[in-house]
């Protein structure tokens, strides 16, 4: 890029004129991968890619803003909590959800990418369910929003299948000795929603009050729902 030309913001910002791009210097990773041609700072890498894709007519920056707005403010665990609360309040809905979650969710108007095939699994006094994706970080986005950092961490992906009870201890959760753990490794496009057990003392609460007891982690199986009266 010659000096004096209009530069699209962000592209190639981390190299001084005339200096070799850091990615062309001896480096510890493969040069077979084109991504190594991008700036090494990830924030600049995003800007560089966005500049290129925008200039080529492949991406509309306004659409990026709308996607961010959706996952920062609109889609999150409050959606899944609404589903669980309805299952707690309505035995007929609970049976329908466990039998065919896709139909039950469609009836509630809940759908979206990474929620195409949902299976709801209910915790019981005999079985505690917990969800992981060891191969990447598959997660039921339309129900829970974007995954929290820990769900995507190597530690969770590596350990949840081998030592789920030790992982639960990291969350401050201890299960009764007589409760079996079943860990669901999401290796296909099926996404699992854990329906936690309705907490004691919640009789008489309406769906909205019940939903306030349902935490994100309780729907992944690394947490338990709040008890009524405990701080949100």
């Amino acid at each position: 890029m010659a000096p004096g030309k209009v530069v699209t913001p962000g592209a190639g910002l981390d190299k001084a004129p005339g200096a070799p791009h850091p990615a062309l210097m001896p480096h510890d990773h493969s040069h077979d991968h084109p991504h190594s041609l991008l700036p090494s700072d990830p924030a600049l890498r995003v800007k560089a890619l966005e500049s290129i894709l925008t200039a080529k007519g492949l991406v509309d920056p306004a659409a990026l803003g709308a996607i961010i707005e959706t996952y920062q403010h609109k889609v999150g665990p409050q959606v899944g909590a609404r589903v669980v609360a309805r299952a707690w309040a309505d035995a007929g809905f609970a049976a329908a959800l466990l039998a065919d979650a896709d139909a039950a969710l469609a009836a509630m108007g809940v759908s979206g990418r990474q929620g195409e095939h949902v299976v709801a699994v209910a915790n019981t006094p005999q079985v505690h369910n917990m969800v992981v994706c060891t191969l990447c970080s598959c997660y039921p986005w339309p129900l829970l929003g974007i995954p929290p950092g820990w769900y995507k961490s190597d530690a969770y992906r590596a350990r949840a299948v081998r030592e789920p009870r030790a992982v639960l201890a990291d969350f401050g959760v201890t299960l009764p000795e007589d409760q079996t753990v079943r860990v669901w490794d999401s290796t296909a496009e099926v996404r699992y929603l854990v329906v936690p057990m309705r907490p004691e003392g919640s009789a008489g609460l309406d769906e909205a009050a019940l939903a306030a007891l349902v935490t994100r982690d309780s729907m992944i199986g690394t947490g338990l729902p709040r008890r009524p009266g405990s701080a949100p």
Binding site: G76, I146, A155, R157, A158, R159, A160, F171, T222
Partner: peptide, 20 residues
């Protein structure tokens, strides 16, 4: 990427409830 069952990754660090 195929890391299920691997040892040595340390503790899982929980985060606050709500939209991640």
């Amino acid at each position: 990427h195929d890391m299920g069952g691997r040892w040595g990754d340390g503790a899982v660090r929980p985060e606050p409830d709500g939209i991640a």
